[in-house]
């Protein structure tokens, strides 16, 4: 898939900001889990809040709030939007 701008991992998305999913850098089971959550290419994701220790963080994904641990979110490559 074509990458149009600079990409970061979902863990680097600042709270309150949005990004567009470009790629999942993982395979097998975790990939399937993430896809089932709706994290397919071109999905808009917003970072909502983080737990007191900073991990996990909660994201707005297709109308639902989903908490992901850093290991999982790190494999989601996104492009930041304004």
């Amino acid at each position: 898939m074509s990458v149009t701008g600079p990409t970061i991992s979902l863990t680097e998305l600042p709270i309150g900001q949005q990004g567009i999913v470009r790629e999942l850098k993982t395979n097998s089971r975790m990939r399937r889990r993430l896809l089932d959550l709706g994290l397919v290419a071109n999905t808009v994701v917003e970072a909502l809040c983080q737990s007191p220790s900073g991990d996990p963080r909660a994201y707005h994904i297709r109308g639902t709030v989903i908490a992901l641990r850093a290991e999982e979110a790190a494999s989601v490559i996104i492009e930041k939007t304004n």
Binding site: I66, A67, E72
Partner: peptide, 11 residues
């Protein structure tokens, strides 16, 4: 290893 977390925070 810890399994995936993916916890929904419902309304």
């Amino acid at each position: 290893l810890p399994s995936s977390f993916a916890l929904e925070l419902p309304p």
